[in-house]
Write a protein that binds this DNA or RNA. Structure first.
Length: 898
RNA sequence: GGGUGCUUAGCUCAGUGGGAGAGCGCCUGCCUUACAAGCAGGAUGUCACAGGUUCAAAUCCUGUAGCGCCCACCA
């Protein structure tokens, strides 16, 4: 046959897009693709939906690369495999993006109005969605695009409503006036999990509150980090057992800067040992104070507007000020009144909005909540009973800890972008109506004047239904029946609370079982300094740029290779050359093999008799396959990538192809046919092994292979049209061959020893050298070595290799010791002995000089006594090393001169 | 404060009871007719520190230090 020609270098741009198109046309991403073996269990992943706030970053690159590896692996095992793609509307985050754009045009959402604003947001959603979809395709994601979903799709919105109504009917959704986390900038409530605590260097202020006239003399000192909230104080609390204050409990204080009087109360919440042992109580603006307020029926004075400025409940002078301004003003005024004691630097944790970074204010408002305890119990049960398993396991602690300390979930958001809360209020009788369908009239009074709740739901209220809402729930759809529960969830650890735990809760509640079996928690990607990649730092890496420079396969393979369990990945653009080099290596090895098809006839595998070298490579291949399968079970992507890399590069290329250059360049036509046939067969199997990690490259090469090439394992004569739907290699115990491995291991050892020797004497690579191998009596590999004289000559660049159980007959060689043999290298013949002796002599002299210096140092008693012990030890070691070196070179000289 | 992870070669990291390793970088020599994105060879480590268990410890236990992350209402 004719040689098949490949370009000289790996150039992914030339084929990646073309191949993705081919896959799409072939409908290979479908769970009903031609490879499917109907009796096998389903393998299903639903994508963690990227937010439509922007485009994909490298974290998504990692996440989706790993999902694609799993999907392709299982698909090639013949399992009906489905990967559901989709995106998330990301309520608050997307709304912020749009508002930012509006601000740039001098607009805001209120000027625009709700309807127009939503129109704008849908446009932004479309923009980002288009890019995200293209990015996923670019990196080769083999997801089923016909099943793509969006959290605000009609179907998913129906699921959201259904869930809200069911939970309401069950009494698990309730509405109430509670202290919630309020972001003054976003103008909405947040759940506890959306508050990010950051260390802030603030101040701790000490103030005096004087007693009201006639109550007692003097004052009580209180400490606070938020002076402005004193305007909302309705009590001062002390511990009931605190002797210092016992007599003062019940007395009234005059609240400075206001005309109000507040009581001193006793509450065991107060820590006597902290500060002055007296705490100001602001029920409207602190969760603990709120609790105390309820216990003591204190007044609740809300001093804030929704935008974070002070409202009409404070004295006029402070109204309209921001909390920051008010703080300064209050401190100044208290100082003027002689009530300020001191302000100390104070480091503490302050809550910030996870989306915009604004300081969170505890704020009393009417909100909707989900009662979580009953749901959390079920989610804990799912884990305890082994329905879900975390990889790595230690994330289970994070999961259970959160569930055990679960708090109710505030799900209403004062935003516009999201699922409108399915509650209407009757204008006439004020009855709230919770309904799956938009109601027309009030069921209680019949009034048609209904208004829907203006708030929307937390974005996670739709994401937590993702594994079944995407499959058609609440309809009893075919997909739901076929593909639920899913198999594996691949996600990062930063959303275990937000998403993973909640999905399990909702799924237990509405589906009666966990939504997936395995939870693989990926690493987080950081830059080389260990910083999170972010737009503001400008240290982000665009996956598309990686694809552009190195190719999608290089992206995928590199990330997989670096993806050690439980470790963050520190990476920069250059890191991807690892994958790209590997691709190039595979490309060129293939190029070499296909080139050697010129004039050859491919032999059928059955008619080839394997040599021990062939058995060795099949043994190694089989070992590699076993490791891959084994580690795939436990999601050890790094280990899998490593063994594949090592097998292909070190075993297949460096030894097997190199060894086969002998027959390939020989005269024996039958030998040539034999050698190239086996090489091509093994290449084909290896490509299948590598395909999940290097989908584009392996497909491109697969398509270049001789079209009629049969498959060795499993034995099929008509290869599938695409490697995507070919068979993944399986462990074949018949290929295990420890004996062949040992035999070839001896060849490798002998070759390496001689190469090292050559290198030590700087013998030019082209210069042939004579070698004698003295094998020990009874050494098993002796005849194998002797039988591969020509191979060793090739690999050692030897002019001649002789064998015997005795030493060399002629002098002038230098021996090296191997396992079961000694190799005598006749260095003297290929080098200028005088020059080499002179070189060695010079080195001995040089080392001798260094040795003298070291010895002198060590002979100095004050050095040994006073110098750092480590330094002394180092010197001793240096001495021993120099002595060894000198002895070895002296030996060499003696041998050369014999 | 609670939890959890890390500390191994210049850098990024594997390795969890018996030989200290990989990739990149570095040094030497090679354009050997697949690949210079390559080939052959090499150097580099008190495996954070201190104790303990063991015939044997980078690996198990205890403690210490440093770094990181998560959670938590100390005003």
């Amino acid at each position: 046959m004719k040689a098949i020609e490949l370009d000289k270098a790996y150039n992914p741009k030339e084929f990646e897009d073309r191949i993705y198109e081919m896959w799409m046309k072939g409908n290979y991403f479908s769970p009903d693709n031609p490879r499917v073996e109907k009796n096998k269990p389903h393998y299903v992943i639903v994508i963690p939906p990227p937010n439509v706030t922007g485009v994909l970053h490298l974290g998504h690159g990692l996440n989706n690369s790993l999902q694609d590896i799993l999907i392709r692996y299982h698909r090639m095992l013949g399992e009906p495999t489905l990967w559901v793609p989709g995106t998330d509307h990301a309520g608050i985050a997307t709304q912020n993006v749009v508002e930012k754009r509006l601000r740039a045009q001098g607009l805001d959402r209120h000027k625009l109005g709700r309807e127009k604003f939503l129109e704008e947001t849908w446009k932004v959603k479309e923009e980002h969605h288009t890019v995200i979809r293209r990015q996923l395709m670019k990196i080769g994601s083999s997801c089923d695009w016909s099943r793509e979903r969006f959290t605000m799709d009609e179907g998913l919105s129906r699921a959201v409503r259904e869930v809200f109504v069911r939970l309401y009917e069950k009494g698990l959704v309730y509405r109430g006036n509670y202290l919630v986390n309020w972001c003054p900038s976003c103008g909405t409530a947040l759940s506890d999990d959306e508050v990010e605590y950051r260390e802030v260097h603030g101040r701790m202020y000490l103030f005096r509150y004087p007693f009201a006239a006639g109550e007692a003399d003097g004052f009580i000192q209180i400490a606070t980090t938020r002076p402005e909230t004193m305007l909302g104080d309705t009590a001062v609390a002390v511990h009931p057992d605190d002797e210092r204050y016992r007599k003062l409990v019940g007395k009234r204080l005059k609240l400075p800067l206001t005309d109000r009087e507040i009581p001193v109360i006793a509450d065991s919440y107060v820590d006597m040992s902290f500060g002055t042992g007296a705490v100001k109580v602001t029920p409207a603006h602190d969760p603990n104070d709120r609790d105390m307020g309820i216990r003591h029926q204190l007044d609740v004075i809300n001093i804030l507007n929704p935008d974070g400025t002070l409202n009409e409940n404070v004295p006029e002078a402070y109204r309209g000020l921001s909390t920051k301004e008010a703080r300064k003003r209050v401190v100044r005024d208290l100082e003027a009144a002689g009530l300020f004691v001191e302000a100390k630097d104070h480091v503490h944790q302050v809550g910030h909005c996870y989306r915009c970074g604004t300081v969170i204010e505890p704020y009393l408002s009417e909100q909707w909540f989900v009662k979580m305890r009953p749901l959390a119990e079920q989610a804990l049960e799912a884990w305890k009973s082994g329905q879900v398993v975390f990889f790595p396991k230690r994330w289970e602690n994070t999961y259970t800890h959160w569930l055990e300390g679960i708090r109710d979930w505030c799900i209403s958001r004062q935003l516009w972008w999201g699922h409108r809360i399915p509650v209407w209020y009757c204008d006439d009788c004020k009855e709230p109506i919770v309904s799956r369908e938009d109601p027309i009239a009030c069921p209680k009074c019949g009034s048609a004047k209904l208004e829907q709740d203006t708030d929307v739901l937390d974005t996670w209220f739709s994401s937590w239904l993702w594994p079944f809402s995407t499959l058609g729930w609440p309809e009893d759809s075919d997909d739901l029946k076929r593909f639920f529960p899913t198999t594996t969830l691949v996600t990062a650890y930063d959303i275990i609370f937000f998403w993973v735990a909640r999905m399990i809760m909702s799924s237990m509640e509405f589906m009666g079982r966990a939504p997936f079996r395995d939870i693989y928690i990926t690493s987080l990607i950081r830059d080389k300094q260990g910083r999170k990649m972010s737009k503001s730092l400008g240290n982000g890496i665009d996956p598309l740029e990686v694809v552009d420079r190195f190719g999608a396969d290089a992206l995928k393979f590199t990330l997989s290779f670096l993806s050690a369990q439980g470790q963050d990945i520190l990476i920069d653009m250059e890191s991807f050359s690892l994958g790209s080099r590997f691709c190039n290596k595979i490309w060129n090895a293939t190029r070499f093999l296909l080139m050697n098809l010129e004039g050859r006839n491919l032999l059928r595998f059955e008619e080839i008799e394997l040599t021990d070298i062939d058995r060795w490579i099949y043994h190694r291949f089989n070992e590699t396959v076993a490791t891959v399968h084994h580690n795939m079970e436990s999601y050890r992507f790094d280990d899998i990538s490593r063994v594949c890399y090592e097998f292909f590069w070190n075993d297949f290329c460096d030894w097997y192809i190199e060894a086969n250059k002998l027959p390939l360049s020989g005269e024996d036509e039958r030998e040539k046919d034999r050698a190239i046939s086996l090489l091509i067969y093994l290449l084909e199997e290896t490509l299948r092994l590598l395909h999940p990690f290097l989908p584009f490259l392996t497909e491109e090469i697969y398509q270049k292979l001789p079209p009629f090439l049969p498959v060795v394992q499993p034995p099929i004569s008509a290869r599938p049209a695409s490697i995507m739907i070919s068979h993944y290699p399986l462990v074949d115990s018949a290929r295990e061959n420890v004996r062949a491995a040992a035999l070839f291991g001896s060849v490798q050892e002998a070759v390496r020893l001689v190469r090292t020797m050559r290198s030590e004497f700087t013998v030019p690579p082209g210069q042939r050298v004579r070698v004698h191998l003295k094998t020990e009596p009874g050494f098993e590999a002796a005849s194998f070595l002797a039988g591969h004289r020509d191979l060793m000559e090739l690999l050692m660049t030897a002019s001649e290799v002789t064998f015997s159980e005795s030493g060399p007959s002629a002098p002038g060689s230098i021996p090296v010791v191997g396992t079961g043999f000694e190799a005598y290298v006749f260095i003297r013949e290929v080098i200028d002995v005088n020059e080499q002796v002179a070189k060695l002599t010079r080195e001995i002299e040089k080392s001798g000089g260094a040795l003298t210096a070291v010895e002198r140092k060590l002979a100095n008693p004050s050095f040994v006594a006073k110098a750092d012990e480590a330094i002394v030890a180092k010197e001793r070691e240096k001495k021993a090393e120099l002595e060894r070196k000198i002895a070895k070179m002296t030996d060499y000289i003696r041998e050369l001169q014999t």
